[in-house]
Simulated scan of single mutants.
Amino acid sequence: MEEKNQQAEAVNEEAVDTTNEDIIDSEESQNNDQLKEDQKTAEKDPVSELEQELEEIKNRMLRTQADYDNFRRRTREEKEAAAKYKALGMVEGLLPVIDNFERAMNLQTDEEQAKSLLQGVQMVYNQLIDALQKEGVEEINAKGEVFDPHLHQAVMQVQSEEYENNTVVEVLQKGYMLKDRVIRPAMVKVNTK
């Protein structure tokens, strides 16, 4: 019986040793799997980091490209505006000259020499107006028009039954526009009822 007990104990020890070996093998297998996963993760981390960095660089490049396109568009628009209004300074300087020409042409005289002088002044005035019109300068129509504060500057008010309310009755000084920009508003008298 003792022999049977010893055999049973030997079988139990063998089973325990086998179980311990299985547990150790299982733990080693798990450790190896974990190491492999860690290696894969470690391998993925640099790749994913590089992919993320590449994505950031692409985004920065797209933003830089958009900024550059906006800069080019603004520069082009500024150049177009500068070309469009290049005559602005010259026109502003010539408006008082035009006013003086008009005052000179309004003089009434009976002398033949004065009439020929006024005719010469009229010719110079016409040439000046033609040159300004070629640059895009236009006179602002005012008399009989509805008062527009963007185009007219009211300096006097009158009450008249001949005109509608808020209508320009008289132009005291002509106004001018360069293309679509008001250079000088027309100074006017406005009817108020």
Rank of each mutant, 00 (worst) to 15 (best):
K179T: 11
N31G: 12
E139Q: 15
M187Y: 07
A186H: 02
A142D: 09
E102C: 00
T64C: 15
E161Q: 03
P46W: 05
M90P: 00
N166A: 10
K4A: 14
K58W: 04
K79F: 15
I23K: 09
L172E: 04
A42Y: 05
Q159L: 04
Y125K: 06
E102H: 00
E145A: 01
G144I: 01
M105W: 00
K193Q: 15
E78A: 15
A114W: 01
D45R: 10
E161A: 03
E21A: 11
F147L: 08
Y68R: 12
I98G: 00
V124F: 03
E112A: 10
D99C: 02
P46N: 11
G120F: 05
S116I: 11
Q34F: 08
Q52Y: 03
F101M: 04
R72Y: 05
G93R: 11
R184P: 05
I183E: 05
N100H: 11
M156T: 13
M177A: 04
R103G: 10
L62F: 11
K143S: 05
T109M: 01
E77Y: 09
D148E: 05
V97H: 09
F71L: 06
K189A: 13
K134H: 06
Q6V: 04
R60E: 15
K193T: 15
M1Y: 05
V188W: 00
V16N: 03
M61W: 09
N141I: 08
Y68F: 15
E37N: 12
P185D: 07
E43D: 15
E170K: 06
R60L: 12
D180T: 09
R60D: 14
L35K: 12
T64K: 11
Q6T: 09
E43P: 03
K44G: 03
Y68N: 15
G144E: 04
L132Q: 02
I24V: 08
Q122N: 14
I23H: 03
N191M: 02
M156Q: 14
E138D: 09
V158Q: 13
E9A: 04
Y68A: 15
Q39D: 13
T18L: 14
E135I: 08
R63N: 15
T75K: 14
I129N: 00
N59I: 15
N31D: 10
E13P: 00
M90W: 03
E37L: 09
E13D: 12
A66L: 06
R73P: 00
E37P: 07
N166M: 03
N5T: 08
N20V: 11
L118V: 06
M177D: 07
Q133Y: 01
A10C: 04
Q7P: 02
T64L: 14
E162Y: 00
K4S: 06
A154I: 00
I24Q: 14
P46K: 04
E164Y: 02
V16M: 08
K143N: 08
H152N: 02
K143I: 10
S29H: 13
V182Q: 07
P149A: 02
E78H: 13
G120A: 04
A154N: 01
D110K: 03
